[in-house]
Structures are given as C-alpha cells and as structure tokens.
Design a protein around this nucleic acid. Structure first.
Lengths: 340, 340
DNA sequence: CTGTTAGCGCATTCAC
DNA sequence: GTGAATGCGCTAACAG
C-alpha cells in the first residue's frame, strides 16, 4: 500500500512533481481540481499522490492564498456543562457544512483567561469566533485583539462592542415558569439565581420579579439568592430558605447547576417536603426519572450553537448589513412528573 | 487605545519594523524574547507592537520554524455524550499546560467520517491526535494518512496498528458490578450490552459472563441483548426481558445510554417492579436523585482525557520507548440509593 | 495546457 | 547587537 521511503520527512508537492517530471504548479492544479489541465495529466498526478501518500499542507496553502482558514474558534466556560457541550455540537454541525473545523477554548469563567484564549485563536488564524462570554463587559473583544475577526456571542448580548449574538429567552422563559408556579397556588417562591452581573442572571431574575409583580406578590428578599451557578452553592442556599419559619413552597432555579443543587437540598428532607415544587431553567437528562416532579424551561442548546455558527458564516460569504443582529431562541415549559 | 489606521488589512512584522526604522528581524527577536538584542530596542519594539495592535501570525511562524504547531486533534463520536465532553475537558487541561489548543472532530460513529476527519486534521498540521475510534479495526489510522502524526486511542486498544492507548477497566468493572448483583441474591440478571464488535462491548460482556460463570449461573440468552448504545434500543430490549415469563430480577447495563433506557423501561411499571435492581457502567449525574436505586461502575472520564493527552506530549518532548504503551483507568463501584 | 517568477509572514543562518 | 539573504510549502499572476 505505502511506498513512502522516508516516513520521517513529510512529502511536499515538489516531491510529487519531481517523480512525475512536472512542475509543482501542475500538481497544485490537479490537487485542487482546478480547470486548465489535461485530463490524463491530472490522473497521473492523483495516482502518484495516492501511491506515495502525499498530503497537502493546508497551512502553507492558506498562507499563500490568503483565503479563509476554515477554522472557527469556540470559547466556552466549561465544556463539562451539558449546555456548552451541546452548543459545541451545534457549532460543529454547521462548520462541517462549510468545510470548517472547530478549535476549542475553555475559560473557566475567568475573563482574563477569555482574553488570552481569544488572542491565541486570532493569532492562529481562526476565521471567526463563537464566544460564550465569561464576564458582563465585552469591550476586550472589540479592539485590536481581534484583528478584524468576526465574533458571535452566545447566551449574552454584546456590551461595549457591536457584534451579532444568539440569546435564549431568559426573561420570558423564567417568567412563564414562575407564572406556572403561581397558577398552581404558590405564593412563597424561592429563587436560586445567578449573579446580577451576568446577563442570564439578570434576565432570569427579571422574569421572576415580573411574574411576582403581575400576580401582586411582594418579593421577599429571604427567598432570593443570587450566586454563582454551582450546585453546591445552590444547595446551601436552598437549605437556608427551607429552614426559614415560613419556608417557600416552591423553588425556581436559574440554571441546570442550581436545579441540581435544589434537588439535592430536598433529597434528605422528611416526606412532607415532597410538597415543595421545583421549576428550573435548562432541561436535565433523566428529569422524568427523578424522585421529585420537576418543571423546566426547555430549549435546544444545539440550536443555539447552530444559529451562532450560521451568523458567523453568513458574514463571511454574503454581504450582510453591518448592523449587529440578534437572534433569540424561544423556550418551552416542560413538565416532568415523577414516575408512576 | 487603537491607532490602527487600516482595520481591514492585518498588520505584519514589516509594518512594525518600518515604523520603527528597524529590520523585521529585530521585531521578531523582540517578540520572542530572544536574547541578543538591546534592552532599549526591545522595549521600543514591544511598545510599538502594543500601540498599533500588531498580532503575530502563528501559522507563518510555524511554517518557517518547522516547530510543533501546538495543536492537538480530538476525534470523538458524539460530544453530546457526557463521557466524551468530559474526556475533552481532560484533553484540553493537559494541552493548555503545553501551550496547545484542541481541534474538535465528531464522527457520529461512522468509520468513514473518522478517516476524513483524521486526514483533514493531519493536513491542518496537528501535532498529535486523541481518537475515540468509531470502529473496531484501526488500520486506517496507521498508513500514510497520518503522515507520522502520533495517535493515542481512548477507550479502545489499537487493532491493526501500534499506538498508545488509554483504557477503562471495562472487564473488571462490569465483573465487579455483576458480582455485586449476585451477592445481593440475584440469579436472573439481564444484560443490556453493546455490539460485540466494539472493544468496550466485548469486554463488558466478558465481565458479565465471567461473573455468572464464577457463581455457577448458566447464561440465559433471553437475558442478553447486545445492541448499539442508544437509550431507545435499550429501553425496548429491557421491556422485552421484563415481559418474559421469568423476567430478570436485575439489569446490568453496559453504558450510560443503556442505563437510561433501562430506567425508562422500569419507569411505568407497576409498583412491584421496584424490586428490580439496576447496575450500569458509567456514572450518571443525579443518579442519587432517581426514583430507583442505581449502582454504577464509576470512573473519571476527565482523567481518561488527561492521560491520553499526556501520552501524546510525552512522545513529543522526551524520547519514550517506541513500544506502544497502554494505561488502564480503574473503576469503582458506587451505590446510589434512592432518596429517603 | 503547462511552466516560471514571485511572495504570503515569518524565522533560520549567516554576515557585519 | 543588528541586518540581509534565503526558504518553509504552497499558490497568484503572468508567461509561453
């Protein structure tokens, strides 16, 4: 199969050309299916290429041609969160359709790390970036750092820069969930939220607040916790609320991590606590198999990724209006009763 | 902040050099912190670089220097599976320690797609590949396709090639889980397995088979299903077994997808079915919150990724013995009782 | 149809 | 300490 006599040194187009007694240009043209080359010549070249196992060097090609690198950078906080891994799936789906690959970068919610990851990716020549921002200010994504590389933000609208973004209906979804709890008769609804500095944190809190207001329920600070999305923190906060003299009869959680925390807080409570209803943002696998009923604000994270990548490629191929675009993914309220 | 007068055209080292009245080499040296350059000159250069927002082109740098690209390819079947996304986290953790980035590729369990992804990544100049193989034969990863790029397989030992690999103790873990079921008095244990063609499928089945044999229990084909890892298929198979005259009293599942299927099959059954015990390979988030008790073969997928990437970098930096290495990640049996 | 020249952005190698 | 020449692998732009 292989006739590669020097396995250590990668073959170049010149090696192929020399063996065939043609110029490198002929090899180049044959390889790219460019027209203006004899049919027999092309076949000879391709045969030789296959025979010796030559592989073109795409970086060199791109350096010279100046064309797109067919590479998209995806910057997230933590790929272990199902939301981000599904988002990555969506981004990749669209990318392969354009012959592009995805380069990964995790920031661990550290804006400084985000800066560095973005800078590195730009230096590596990504054609565009999909960023789930770590902080609330994004002006660091607007200067020379990007060198003109287009950016799409996911899950947060741009602040301090003007770029496209894909959002989830954080406000509407949370409001709907809260309304549902109210419709079921709950008046003391605990909120396990995210930091106000985060867009999602602020929007989801706004949905909670408005639903309460619309129902004429005064917000009680004892029932509100706004912390980093972390199941341990959420669990602690939930335990605190449940220990109050008048504990909430329902808990509304602002993301999947907080939902997990809330469920854990209810885990070991006496049987009566089953009466406490939990509703949360983000769907959770096996939610229908839990010991407690759970209502979730559901949406498709894969779709978020698909839209983000699409916005990026549209800017590259067609001439879209320079106005920043904003797409919002809608949510659905889904009920997960307990089995039986 | 920015003095970039031509935002469309990326700046080059020559632009910086020209503005300073020095040669590009001086800029190059200053940028790489190379010694043999005046301290004041370096400062002037770095100041100018910062002022006009010049960013080096890493592809061009690498093309000329011939050094490593600091880029690792990660090829998985489906990033939406928590196992693979956690593996990706581990790979990336190690990569950043070496200043490298991760390039992503999904195969959808299609060996042909795997070939193409790998070829593409090699052409893009990855320094190494971590592959979770889609098929059972890996000889396509051994020829000219790779151009000498080192590969580490994850979750499957190499077949038809000689490369390093990281495995999970599929056999031992499954055997231990099955033994536990037997110790709890079960004799009719259903097995929801993976295709025998997959390494994990075959090894986990072997663990099941040996545990039965050791206990003097004859294997009953009616209690064995070996299908693609897919929760819907697993659910169907489980329903079939539970409808038998003598249904199994316990189910052993070969991966997280099958566990989900098994749980779903038990979801709507009359109360008596709670007596059916489920044990499965792979831990599951919220397993402790389920309506049914669950015992899992647990291990750290992040660690699998970390080890895989480490094996790759060790081959690059130090001169490791050319013998293919094999690392096995051990498993632990973890009990998840139902709440309360 | 094919080959030659030049150069993408940068770094090696050698001068000075 | 700094600069000039040369080339990484490949392809535009122009020959012929």
């Amino acid at each position: 199969m292989s006739t590669n006599s020097d396995p250590e040194q990668a073959l170049t187009m010149r090696d192929v050309a020399k063996r065939l007694g043609v110029s490198p240009m002929t090899v180049s043209r044959a390889l790219r299916g460019q027209r203006g080359i004899g049919e027999d010549t092309r076949k000879r070249v391709l045969a030789e290429v296959a025979a010796i196992g030559y592989r073109p060097n795409k970086r060199a090609r791109n350096l010279r041609s100046g064309g797109p690198n067919e590479l998209i950078g995806l910057v997230v906080t933590n790929l272990a969160n199902p939301f981000y891994s599904q988002l990555a799936v969506g981004v990749e789906q669209v990318c392969v359709g354009y012959g592009a690959r995805v380069m990964l970068g995790s920031t661990g919610e550290d804006p400084q790390a985000e800066r560095e990851v973005v800078a590195d990716m730009v230096e590596r020549g990504v054609d565009g970036l999909v960023v789930v921002p770590a902080g609330h200010d994004h002006s660091h994504l607007g200067g020379d750092l990007l060198n003109g590389t287009p950016v799409v933000l996911a899950a947060s609208p741009p602040m301090g820069i003007e770029v496209d973004c894909v959002l989830v209906d954080d406000f509407g979804g949370t409001r709907q969930a809260c309304r549902e709890l109210i419709a079921r008769g709950h008046r003391r609804i605990g909120f396990l939220g995210l930091p106000p500095s985060l867009w999602t944190g602020s929007e989801r809190f706004r949905g909670y607040a408005l639903a309460l207001e619309e129902a004429g329920i005064a917000m009680d600070e004892r029932y509100v916790s706004r912390h980093r999305g972390d199941s341990a923190l959420a669990e602690k906060a939930a335990r605190g609320m449940l220990a109050l003299d008048e504990p909430p009869t329902a808990l509304l959680t602002a993301n999947n991590r907080n939902t997990v925390g809330a469920l854990r807080a209810l885990r070991d409570r006496p049987d009566g606590s089953k009466a406490i209803t939990v509703a949360g943002f983000d769907d959770i696998e096996l939610a229908d198999m839990l010991d407690l009923p759970l209502t979730v604000v559901s949406y498709d994270p894969v779709e978020v990724g698909r839209v983000a990548a699409s916005l990026l490629f549209e800017r590259q191929t067609s001439t879209v209006s320079p106005q920043p675009r904003r797409v919002t993914i809608s949510t659905t309220l889904v009920d997960h009763p307990t089995p039986r």
